[in-house]
Each structure stands twice: as structure tokens, then as C-alpha cells.
Design a protein around this nucleic acid. Structure first.
Lengths: 163, 163
DNA sequence: GCACAAATGCTACAATGTTGCACAAATGGC
DNA sequence: GCCATTTGTGCAACATTGTAGCATTTGTGC
């Protein structure tokens, strides 16, 4: 469906206030059960989810979706810049909504509970310059350590805080 | 493992000037064909290599090593802090020697030729602070873009250089 | 050289992701 | 509302990456 041209094209940053159906339609994609469901799951989550977590979330909501279809729906969302892929600690991709376009934030991977959180307030930066001739399209910063929950006094031994 | 206590323990940063055999022995590990071969391949490379590339390099040298044995040798090297794992763009791990202990460098992933390079002169930094309660053990910065080779004038269209 | 623990080399298996293809469903035109 | 077209889905099969179990071989200390 060629997105209704008279409707104002939703800018990418609108991912958080347009309805899932509108967002999909605005990209010229078909509004299907799977895409809507996946998008809502991603929107409801405050951390990147891997394929398996998304699948479970959908099953929990009583909806069954094929594994392959989920992969394809996620691929489409990434292709449309609605979602992004984040490399997880295992070899599975994690997906999250693009909420703040143009704002690069870092990810924090908790080595104790395994969660990956978005650190909205931390932005990747470089000390030093790229070698000449290199051009940069994207930067990906992943911090590894322990999150506040796992760092709570009774949670166990302390960890080194460096950098 | 109880490394020979009378031998001066090689500090991790010695990885680039001790022979592979000495380095392995200093960690109290057995000096085996596979470990020596893997270590020399990693040492000879200026970029992180995945399991498959290491395997090919060994085959090219006329040595056959079992897939599983390579994984285990690499695991051991990582465990001993002789090598580190780097998450690649596909879901395969890449491995590289620990050459400069305590010096964090970033990795550059060329989106055209697929190579991953170590940027010795670029160090990850943060703009903004970690939320309270969080502790940091390690930071991983991966830059995506085009390398100098792929960026050469005749190589094609220009890329945006931002950040 | 011998004994023993560590490492290797198999096979089998698990997890993650992709491809091909028939079928179903979303859309647009009527 | 109905139909044709095109897109997306669901299934099976397969590819890649990595792990587990276990018998055999090899490195080391004596």
C-alpha cells in the first residue's frame, strides 16, 4: 500500500507517539498482525529484546507467530529504520525501537543478570581522531559491568569501577 | 592453574615479545601444537580474526586442527587473558591478542570490505555519567563506516563522516 | 620409559538465523 | 462488497556457530 501521500509522513522520531499501525502504514508496508504485534512489544519494552524474548512475549499475550515470520518482521522494521539491531553478549541480535533519532546512546550490559539497558544519558565519544581516509557512519558503545539492582549491598561482592 | 612459581610470571603485556611457547608455559598450560599455532596466527594478524579465519590460516600453513579443539584453545587463551573476544558484525566472535594491557582501544568495522581493525589511537570515552549504582568493568566501542582503502577516490560514492 | 592429568579429535547436539516455496491475507480498483 | 494482485506468512529444510560427552592421544614430571 502506497502510504497515503496526503498524510504527513511520520518522521522516524515519531516512533513513540504514532500508533503501530500508522507507523507501519506510513512506511508503505502492509499492516499485518505480526508487524503490529512485534512493534507493540518493542514499544512496551525499555530494553533491547532478542528474538526469543519477543516470541515469548507474544506467546504470553496468547498470540502465536512463526519464528521465521518474526525474523522477517524484525528485518523489515530495521530496514525501515523503525528498529535497530544491537549485538548481544551471546551471539543473538537484540532489537529495540529507534526512539531518539540522531541521538546516539550507549548500551549497558549487566554481567550478572544479563540484561541490556539503554543509557539515554551516556553518549559515545572518542578520545583521539580517526585515521585519515576513514569515514564514520555509526558508533556502537557497549558498557559491561553490574547494574544498580545487582550492585545493591546485599547482592554480593563489589565490582571495580574503572574507565 | 598453578603456573610454575619459580619462573617470572610474564605480565600480560609481554604477549608481543615472548615466544608463543614461553607465553603458554608461563601460564601453566601445556604447550600443545594447537595452542602454539593459534597464538602465532593471532600474533601475525593485525586485525581480530574469527574462528573460521584462524582455521583457514592454519590449513593454509598445511596444518589441520579440529574445529572443536580450536574453540577450546581460543577459550583457553581468552581465559588466560592472552587473547580477547570481540563481537563481530555477524554473530561470530572474533579473537585478537591482548597487546596493550590497560589500554582500551576501539575497533573499526568497515561496512564495505567487512574487515575489523584495531584503532590503537582511539580510546572509548563517555559523555555523561553512569547512573548511580552502576559499576563498569569494561567498555566496548565499535565504529562502523568505511576504511581508508574503501574510501579511496575511485572506490565509489562518498560517505557521511559524523560524530 | 612410565603414570597421570590435560588436551585432542571424534560424534552428536543446541541455538540462531536463512532460503525456498506453497498458501493466505492486505490492498486497491471495480 | 468482490476480485485480482502483490505482499507477507507458515512450514520444512538447511547453514553457521558454538557446546557437550567421551574415548584416545600427548605433554610433563618423576
Amino acid at each position: 500500500m502506497a502510504a497515503n501521500p496526503s498524510a504527513p509522513a511520520h518522521p522516524p522520531s515519531a516512533a513513540h507517539d504514532a500508533s503501530a499501525r500508522e507507523l507501519i502504514a506510513a512506511r508503505g508496508g502492509r499492516v499485518t498482525r505480526t508487524r503490529v504485534a512485534v512493534l507493540e512489544v518493542l514499544r512496551a519494552s525499555h530494553q533491547p529484546l532478542n528474538h526469543d524474548q519477543i516470541c515469548s512475549a507474544l506467546e504470553g499475550a496468547g498470540e502465536h507467530h512463526d519464528r521465521v515470520t518474526l525474523y522477517r518482521a524484525l528485518d523489515w522494521l530495521v530496514e525501515q529504520d523503525i528498529a535497530t539491531r544491537v549485538a548481544g553478549s551471546d551471539r543473538a541480535w537484540k532489537f529495540e525501537l529507534v526512539r531518539h533519532h540522531g541521538h546516539r546512546h550507549a548500551h549497558f550490559h549487566c554481567q550478572r543478570c544479563g540484561r541490556v539497558l539503554c543509557l539515554e544519558e551516556v553518549e559515545p565519544a572518542l578520545c583521539g581522531a580517526l585515521p585519515s581516509g576513514f569515514s564514520l557512519a555509526q558508533a556502537e558503545l557497549v558498557l559491561h559491568g553490574a547494574c544498580a539492582d545487582c550492585n545493591a549491598p546485599e547482592a554480593g561482592t563489589e565490582h571495580q569501577a574503572c574507565l
